[in-house]
Design a protein around this nucleic acid. Structure first.
Lengths: 128, 128
DNA sequence: CAAAAGTGTTAGGACATCCTAACTTTTAAA
DNA sequence: TTTAAAAGTTAGGATGTCCTAACACTTTTG
């Protein structure tokens, strides 16, 4: 049913989620700018995501995540945020580098590892 | 001069390093098996690495890392090992999953973050 | 409301990586 | 030493992701 999404398309979902929460409507142009790619590329990616039922998009219109798409986007962002917090608060990595690393690592870590990172940081807070 | 290698080609280098240390000669077939891809794909990848001066390969012969190739391979493996140790010893991830996660994460973490992970684990050992 | 500016799409192509099928070379065994 | 098995290569094709150029639609604004 739901095949695993490529890293690239996960990035699209995450970007759409972020834009959804700050703008009213998410446009192809906004995505292109945030993702740092051209509009034709975004159009293509959006088409693929729509074909998987992860978002809704009508020609020349804005983009909306479906429930399933939002769920996946939220998971990706969760991984991103957990990793970033770990890098900054535990390792002392600079925020800018943490952001960069987290962008890549979010596609590499398993759910189990993320859950353990969360646990680890909680325990660490209690102990201090 | 040295353009950044793709994740795929970094994996090739790492595999060659591992095989180099356990067998006398590294063959295309060995690599194909270890990487889980077909021989034609390996032939192609090896050609690309040879073109970048990272390994030496004559038709129908074995594969040898150059000094530069070995250096890069060692770096990749270092990232891999540091991550794996962290996952197992600090987070308590199972060895099998740690291996899997490290395989992907090794292409995502910056040198700075790896260095900090090492530091973190050293400090942690001293404190215990 | 017409024209300019902005937004989105289509077409066509590049590149990396993988594959299968068919062929060649090398190695090993009868 | 010839032949069968194994190893390696080549050719040709698929897929995913990106691009530029050109075109189509929409929005803004004079």
């Amino acid at each position: 049913m739901t095949l695993p999404l490529s890293n690239t398309l996960q990035d699209y979902l995450e970007a759409i989620l972020i834009l959804t929460e700050q703008d009213e409507a998410v446009r192809i142009s906004d995505l292109a700018q945030l993702l740092g790619i051209t509009k034709p590329s975004v159009t293509e990616g959006v088409k693929a995501l729509a074909a998987q039922g992860l978002l809704r998009h009508e020609k020349y219109g804005p983009v909306f995540l479906t429930a399933e798409g939002e769920k996946m986007a939220t998971e990706v962002r969760h991984r991103h945020l957990v990793l970033k917090q770990f890098l900054i608060n535990v390792l002392g990595v600079s925020p800018a580098l943490a952001e960069k690393d987290a962008c890549l690592m979010e596609h590499a870590v398993s759910s189990d590892t993320v859950a353990r990172l969360v646990q680890f940081m909680e325990k660490r807070l209690q102990e201090s």
